[in-house]
């Protein structure tokens, strides 16, 4: 008995030995910067010859971010609105494309190749060059009746729709990985379920709502979280400008940036939390 126990302990030790690089890396490159930036956001630091002097300032930087800073509230709201509006559009679009691709069609591999292409080439500078030089604006939406129609509505109602038209290409470009995830999920639904439903007289519309959608639900949740994180970390967000711009402020080096980055972190977590509550399995 004790010999078996010993072998078990030894196995666990070997396992931890293989896993240990992650623990070290996590502590050094993730946990430390993560919590240190939380700490910094409450302190005013001064770098002197003898070392670092820090004085506790409480929520001063957090208050300043919304009451004193002129650009941060705008950058912050823009980025957060972008995430909230783009995520559902990307996920729904990816699901539709995956369902289209899940049919027996010619050139299926070609279309899949095409839709995945942006994942490979997308980067902050490339997207901003394309946007600034009008390459991302596929149609001049102003010419279309439906766009005109939405502009006549009150701002609050029309805003999401106009946003969708203006950012159409970018929404497509962010959905490559999600399409593949959904395709993998759709492939897992066994064909016998569809056949049984068809024999019972269900049409495609009913099959989608009653079979495909419930079975693909876990993938909707994964894709939604992936999309939120992907959009939140993207290099072009205007909130990044605020964070990097204030890093070397003479009177509050690092601290104010750290506070801004924590405001952003809390907001992104809140979005993920809401998405989780909406999409989790309700048993």
């Amino acid at each position: 008995m004790s010999k078996r126990l010993k072998a078990k302990t030894k196995r666990a030790l070997v396992g931890y030995l293989f896993f240990s690089p992650w623990i070290i890396g996590f502590l050094l490159f993730t946990a430390y910067p993560f919590f240190y930036s939380l700490y910094l956001s409450f302190f005013k630091v001064r770098f002197t010859v003898s070392g670092v002097e820090s004085t506790f300032v409480g929520f001063e930087f957090y208050k300043y971010a919304f009451r004193g800073d002129l650009t941060f509230p705008i950058n912050f709201t823009n980025t957060i609105t972008n995430i909230i509006l783009s995520t559902p559009l990307i996920v729904i679009f990816a699901l539709i494309v995956a369902i289209l691709l899940n049919n027996k069609i010619k050139f299926r591999a070609f279309f899949r190749l095409l839709y995945f292409l942006p994942v490979v080439i997308i980067s902050g500078p490339v997207v901003s060059e394309l946007v600034e030089n009008n390459a991302a604006r596929i149609v001049d939406p102003g010419k279309y009746f439906i766009y005109q129609f939405f502009t006549t509505l009150p701002d609050r109602i029309s805003f999401p729709f106009l946003y969708m038209f203006d950012n159409l290409v970018l929404i497509l470009w962010f959905s490559g990985v999600q399409i593949l995830f959904f395709l993998a999920g759709l492939q897992k639904i066994s064909s016998s379920i569809y056949e049984a439903a068809k024999i019972d007289g269900a049409n495609s519309w009913i099959i989608f709502w009653k079979i495909t959608l419930p079975l693909i639900r876990p993938f909707i949740l994964i894709n939604t979280i992936y999309t939120i994180v992907d959009l939140a970390s993207f290099a072009n967000n205007s909130v990044n400008t605020s964070i990097t711009q204030h890093m070397f402020d003479i009177d509050r080096p690092y601290s104010y940036s750290a506070a801004l980055s924590w405001i952003y972190f809390v907001a992104v977590m809140a979005i993920i939390g809401v998405a989780f509550l909406i999409l989790r399995k309700k048993d």
């Binding site: 992650w22 996590f26 910067p33 240190y36 930036s37 972190f265 977590m269």
Partner: peptide, 24 residues
């Protein structure tokens, strides 16, 4: 626990650790 922690690190936006990573 470790598996959940690994996945949790994915959720942290790069910006949150940007400043202190630079300091480190």
């Amino acid at each position: 626990f470790w598996l959940v922690l690994v996945l949790a690190t994915f959720l942290i936006p790069a910006q949150t650790t940007l400043v202190t990573k630079y300091m480190l």
